[in-house]
Design a protein around this nucleic acid. Sequence first.
DNA 1: ATGAAAGCGCTAACAA
DNA 2: TTGTTAGCGCTTTCAT
Lengths: 323, 323
Amino acid sequence: MRDIAERLGLSQTTVSHVLAGNHERFRISRETVDKVWRMAGKMRYRSNALARAFRERRSRSVALAVEDLTNPFWTGLAVGAEHEADRLGYTLVVSNTGGSLQKEQQAARMLEEGRVDGLILAPIRQVDPYLSELYRAGRPIVQIDRPLRNLDVACVRTDHAAGSVLAVEHLAGRRHARIAYVGGPLRVPTYRQRREGFRRAMRRRGLKPAAEIAVDPTPEAAHRAVSRLLSGSPRPSALYTANIWLTLGALRAIQESGLAVPAQIDVVGFDDIQMADLLRYPVTTIAQDVESIGREAFKVLMQVMKGRKVPREVLLPPALIVR
Amino acid sequence: MRDIAERLGLSQTTVSHVLAGNHERFRISRETVDKVWRMAGKMRYRSNALARAFRERRSRSVALAVEDLTNPFWTGLAVGAEHEADRLGYTLVVSNTGGSLQKEQQAARMLEEGRVDGLILAPIRQVDPYLSELYRAGRPIVQIDRPLRNLDVACVRTDHAAGSVLAVEHLAGRRHARIAYVGGPLRVPTYRQRREGFRRAMRRRGLKPAAEIAVDPTPEAAHRAVSRLLSGSPRPSALYTANIWLTLGALRAIQESGLAVPAQIDVVGFDDIQMADLLRYPVTTIAQDVESIGREAFKVLMQVMKGRKVPREVLLPPALIVR
DNA sequence: ATGAAAGCGCTAACAA
DNA sequence: TTGTTAGCGCTTTCAT
């Protein structure tokens, strides 16, 4: 800017006014505006984002901490959030935590250090003094998929319980009476809510769960658990698996067992599967609107950043995809 | 820092020396160092990343422009790159271009404006004056998956041709003589190299391609093309699909045709498929070491950023996964 | 072993 | 309509 100003015999300030697009506000003459832009083009001026961010005390970027980018849920969320970020001129910094608290705190530190203006994350712990304090100190935070306990931070998520209701209704509609639930750890609100919905829907239908298990949300753990389930007696006639990895593991166990799907064992899984139509077994799924979660979370974060009041929870409806 | 200095009766400079971890270099007394750190802790000092980046003229972050985060190839790459970035104290900004030149240039602009110190990308165009000039202006760039023509920028990628050789050798070993190639647009180096490898391997085996088609790398396009292929006569006995979406589309066409796999039609696809074991049809794949590509690209970029000379190409071997 | 001072590139309050 | 000036928080050079 200084160079441009010198060559044009203007002040650096005027050049700044023009280049920042504030010529209207400062009533810079059309002529000067043109001159400045032309010279800027000729000299290949590029604004220094670092200087501007420093001066303005904001980076126009936002961090998104996801648990596992190889899971389409988190990927879709990231894509949705980036869309929205892009639309509003923000840069999205995606951080893959892999469920590590340390990496989550690293993301939080980016917020503390001003590297990003806001943070979207799915808290790993239920109660987190560090995050709580950050939030109370006025740092913009929005949660996704699951909320912190004891803290009034906005959370954007699928209506997990409603998804479970869809699953049970679907299976009950198919005359299944022995439905088993395969879920994740109950300390995670996501799984608590999915099981809660399952129980409620079963009760309403007058059914008793054939089994209820909670394992680590990995294909391996689900594989083992479901194998055991299938060799028990009486065998469940249907499985509701509460997460994509659990569904995968269950399908593997079923494949191993040689049971016929859906004749001998029926399956509904939470989280949609891209190539479900190519699978050996038709699997009905509860699809989350993943991109919307990302987009909404970003929108809510922007509101928070503007100091607006936002709803405590934004619930998005899941959809049943029958196959 | 100023506040800490004031309370301690020190200069801001000294505090900076300590907090930046440079007490050794400036021979600050043990006592002062301790005092400063304690006060920093008490006052909950957080360094201002924006100020530091501004002053140091570097952001310690790097941009990665990927084409499509819903494709496990790009996701894996991002995960690998982030691992490495993390290890070295860098922040990775992932930008999902969706194949849009505009979004690619947006990423390039982040580099120009100093928002990031380096850029990893898979160039959309073959010849790109903008990127070329950026690179020649000394901005650190590393390419992945495919290189720009006419420009000596490092490129980290799978040895595509070698992958094709694996595919053909596998099929030829299974006594297939009528192998059809289903690839992507030939303007993309990736697909050119995969087809090149296919042709070479076929020739070496004394085989003539049953067909060679190039379509948009989408399931839909592949579905249509392969349907046509399968209803032709003589029908190919095997398909080599040069990308994950092409494989998907081909499998759908096969499913529709009712042909038996692998008895009537055999398939090898480039890019591994996570749940291949659960598919109706066993599909052998050429797996890329996606995380390594990301990691290597980042490492090479660091070298470039240090001004070191780097190899023009880093080739990673693909692996055949037989199913 | 510590400090004074300059300056990174930009924005904005204020002056003219 | 344009210019002067201060200052954002930090690192670094040079003095002491």
